[in-house]
Amino acid sequence: MNAASPHIDPPLAMLIELTYRCPLRCPYCSNPLEMTAASGEMDTGQWLGVIEEAADMGVLQIHFSGGEPTVRQDLEDMVGRAEVLGIYTNLITSGVLIDQARLEGLAETLGQMGGPRIGPAMTNMMQAMPRSITLHALVLFSTGESIFAP
Protein backbone atom coordinates (compact mmCIF):
# COMPACT_ATOMS: atom_id res chain seq x y z
CA MET A 1 0.00 0.00 0.00
CA ASN A 2 1.13 3.52 -0.66
CA ALA A 3 1.94 5.51 2.42
CA ALA A 4 -0.22 8.33 1.11
CA SER A 5 -3.38 6.70 -0.19
CA PRO A 6 -4.89 8.65 -3.08
CA HIS A 7 -8.03 10.65 -2.46
CA ILE A 8 -11.02 9.05 -4.13
CA ASP A 9 -14.13 11.14 -4.69
CA PRO A 10 -17.44 9.54 -3.79
CA PRO A 11 -19.26 8.11 -6.83
CA LEU A 12 -21.78 10.25 -8.70
CA ALA A 13 -23.77 7.31 -10.02
CA MET A 14 -24.40 3.67 -9.27
CA LEU A 15 -25.37 0.91 -11.69
CA ILE A 16 -27.41 -1.76 -9.90
CA GLU A 17 -27.73 -5.18 -11.51
CA LEU A 18 -30.80 -6.29 -9.58
CA THR A 19 -30.96 -9.73 -11.14
CA TYR A 20 -29.34 -11.72 -13.89
CA ARG A 21 -32.60 -13.31 -14.95
CA CYS A 22 -33.73 -12.19 -18.41
CA PRO A 23 -36.24 -13.54 -20.93
CA LEU A 24 -34.22 -12.26 -23.90
CA ARG A 25 -31.00 -13.48 -25.46
CA CYS A 26 -29.81 -10.40 -27.29
CA PRO A 27 -26.55 -11.11 -29.11
CA TYR A 28 -24.91 -7.82 -28.14
CA CYS A 29 -25.46 -8.27 -24.41
CA SER A 30 -22.37 -9.07 -22.40
CA ASN A 31 -24.03 -9.44 -19.02
CA PRO A 32 -24.25 -12.88 -17.48
CA LEU A 33 -27.55 -14.73 -17.53
CA GLU A 34 -28.68 -16.16 -14.25
CA MET A 35 -25.29 -16.06 -12.60
CA THR A 36 -27.21 -16.69 -9.42
CA ALA A 37 -30.63 -18.27 -9.10
CA ALA A 38 -33.50 -16.06 -7.99
CA SER A 39 -33.16 -17.51 -4.50
CA GLY A 40 -29.55 -16.32 -4.35
CA GLU A 41 -30.30 -12.71 -5.24
CA MET A 42 -30.13 -9.95 -2.66
CA ASP A 43 -33.54 -9.38 -1.12
CA THR A 44 -35.54 -6.18 -0.96
CA GLY A 45 -34.23 -5.15 2.44
CA GLN A 46 -30.63 -5.64 1.44
CA TRP A 47 -31.06 -3.55 -1.71
CA LEU A 48 -32.88 -0.81 0.19
CA GLY A 49 -29.93 -0.72 2.58
CA VAL A 50 -27.52 -0.39 -0.33
CA ILE A 51 -29.59 2.45 -1.77
CA GLU A 52 -29.61 4.25 1.60
CA GLU A 53 -25.84 3.91 1.85
CA ALA A 54 -25.43 5.17 -1.69
CA ALA A 55 -27.47 8.26 -0.89
CA ASP A 56 -25.39 8.94 2.23
CA MET A 57 -22.26 8.60 0.15
CA GLY A 58 -23.42 11.22 -2.33
CA VAL A 59 -24.67 9.09 -5.24
CA LEU A 60 -26.88 11.30 -7.42
CA GLN A 61 -28.12 8.80 -9.99
CA ILE A 62 -29.00 5.11 -9.87
CA HIS A 63 -29.37 2.99 -12.99
CA PHE A 64 -31.56 -0.05 -12.39
CA SER A 65 -30.41 -2.80 -14.72
CA GLY A 66 -29.89 -6.55 -14.87
CA GLY A 67 -30.60 -8.97 -16.37
CA GLU A 68 -34.06 -7.67 -16.84
CA PRO A 69 -34.80 -5.52 -13.77
CA THR A 70 -38.57 -5.76 -14.14
CA VAL A 71 -38.53 -9.47 -13.26
CA ARG A 72 -38.09 -8.15 -9.71
CA GLN A 73 -41.57 -7.46 -8.41
CA ASP A 74 -40.01 -5.25 -5.73
CA LEU A 75 -38.48 -2.91 -8.33
CA GLU A 76 -41.04 -0.25 -7.44
CA ASP A 77 -39.97 -0.33 -3.77
CA MET A 78 -36.39 0.34 -4.75
CA VAL A 79 -37.17 3.04 -7.27
CA GLY A 80 -39.50 4.66 -4.73
CA ARG A 81 -36.87 4.62 -1.99
CA ALA A 82 -34.24 6.11 -4.28
CA GLU A 83 -36.62 8.88 -5.32
CA VAL A 84 -37.55 9.64 -1.72
CA LEU A 85 -33.84 9.99 -1.00
CA GLY A 86 -33.54 12.45 -3.86
CA ILE A 87 -31.64 10.15 -6.19
CA TYR A 88 -32.37 10.44 -9.91
CA THR A 89 -33.49 7.04 -11.19
CA ASN A 90 -32.92 5.43 -14.57
CA LEU A 91 -34.49 2.13 -15.58
CA ILE A 92 -32.82 0.09 -18.28
CA THR A 93 -35.38 -2.37 -19.59
CA SER A 94 -36.51 -4.11 -22.74
CA GLY A 95 -40.06 -3.45 -21.59
CA VAL A 96 -41.24 -6.88 -22.68
CA LEU A 97 -42.35 -8.05 -19.23
CA ILE A 98 -44.38 -5.05 -18.14
CA ASP A 99 -48.01 -4.27 -18.84
CA GLN A 100 -49.46 -0.82 -19.16
CA ALA A 101 -50.48 -0.47 -15.51
CA ARG A 102 -47.02 -1.31 -14.22
CA LEU A 103 -45.39 0.82 -16.86
CA GLU A 104 -47.48 3.85 -15.99
CA GLY A 105 -46.76 3.38 -12.28
CA LEU A 106 -43.04 3.24 -12.93
CA ALA A 107 -43.11 6.13 -15.37
CA GLU A 108 -44.74 8.29 -12.67
CA THR A 109 -41.86 7.69 -10.29
CA LEU A 110 -38.81 7.29 -12.47
CA GLY A 111 -36.50 10.02 -13.61
CA GLN A 112 -36.40 8.28 -16.93
CA MET A 113 -36.88 4.93 -18.57
CA GLY A 114 -34.49 3.74 -21.22
CA GLY A 115 -34.21 0.87 -23.61
CA PRO A 116 -31.08 -1.18 -24.14
CA ARG A 117 -28.60 -0.17 -26.76
CA ILE A 118 -30.59 -1.34 -29.67
CA GLY A 119 -29.61 -2.54 -33.12
CA PRO A 120 -31.73 -1.83 -36.22
CA ALA A 121 -33.73 -5.07 -36.11
CA MET A 122 -34.60 -4.62 -32.46
CA THR A 123 -35.45 -0.96 -33.00
CA ASN A 124 -38.05 -1.96 -35.56
CA MET A 125 -39.51 -4.47 -33.16
CA MET A 126 -39.60 -1.94 -30.34
CA GLN A 127 -41.24 0.65 -32.55
CA ALA A 128 -43.97 -1.80 -33.44
CA MET A 129 -44.41 -3.20 -29.94
CA PRO A 130 -44.93 -0.40 -27.46
CA ARG A 131 -47.48 1.60 -29.46
CA SER A 132 -50.09 -0.81 -28.23
CA ILE A 133 -49.18 -0.13 -24.64
CA THR A 134 -48.78 3.62 -24.99
CA LEU A 135 -45.17 3.74 -23.91
CA HIS A 136 -44.43 7.42 -23.52
CA ALA A 137 -41.12 7.37 -21.82
CA LEU A 138 -38.98 4.91 -23.73
CA VAL A 139 -35.75 6.52 -24.76
CA LEU A 140 -33.07 4.91 -26.84
CA PHE A 141 -29.72 5.54 -25.26
CA SER A 142 -27.90 4.88 -28.51
CA THR A 143 -29.55 7.71 -30.38
CA GLY A 144 -31.10 9.86 -27.69
CA GLU A 145 -34.36 9.63 -29.58
CA SER A 146 -37.74 9.21 -27.99
CA ILE A 147 -39.83 6.76 -29.92
CA PHE A 148 -43.05 8.42 -28.91
CA ALA A 149 -44.03 11.98 -28.48
CA PRO A 150 -45.21 12.55 -24.90
Binding site: G58, L60, Q112, V139
Partner: peptide, 19 residues
Protein backbone atom coordinates in the same frame (compact mmCIF):
# COMPACT_ATOMS: atom_id res chain seq x y z
CA UNK B 1 -34.30 18.12 -12.36
CA UNK B 2 -32.45 20.85 -10.55
CA UNK B 3 -30.95 19.61 -7.29
CA UNK B 4 -28.60 20.80 -4.59
CA UNK B 5 -25.84 18.25 -4.23
CA UNK B 6 -25.22 18.59 -0.51
CA UNK B 7 -22.14 16.38 -0.09
CA UNK B 8 -20.30 18.37 -2.78
CA UNK B 9 -21.88 21.73 -1.95
CA UNK B 10 -22.93 22.41 -5.54
CA UNK B 11 -26.05 22.69 -7.70
CA UNK B 12 -26.58 20.13 -10.43
CA UNK B 13 -28.97 19.60 -13.28
CA UNK B 14 -29.84 15.91 -13.44
CA UNK B 15 -30.92 14.37 -16.74
CA UNK B 16 -31.09 10.86 -18.18
CA UNK B 17 -27.65 9.26 -17.81
CA UNK B 18 -25.91 12.58 -17.19
CA UNK B 19 -25.60 15.65 -15.05
Amino acid sequence: RLKFDKPRDQWVLLAPERM
